[in-house]
């Protein structure tokens, strides 16, 4: 046991779970963020360039 709580295998496994989960959360929030930013920018560019 490592640190008296988790084994090496558990640390690695759960770290992987956390990384994947965080990645997907970041993906969702990032996608939404980029979408909003892109829409705003598109509007600005359309106003600027006219198409």
């Amino acid at each position: 046991m490592v640190f008296g709580l988790l084994t090496y295998g558990q640390i690695v496994f759960y770290t992987g779970i956390i990384i994947v989960s965080v990645s997907f959360i970041a993906l969702i929030t990032g996608t939404i963020g980029f979408f909003i930013k892109k829409q705003n920018l598109k509007k600005q560019l359309t106003d600027k360039y006219g198409f």
Binding site: T7, Y8, G9, Q10, I11, V12, F13, Y14, T15, G16, I17, I19, V20
Partner: peptide, 9 residues
């Protein structure tokens, strides 16, 4: 990490 961790687990 998950794959390796599972194997180690």
């Amino acid at each position: 990490f998950i794959f390796k961790g599972y194997r180690v687990l």
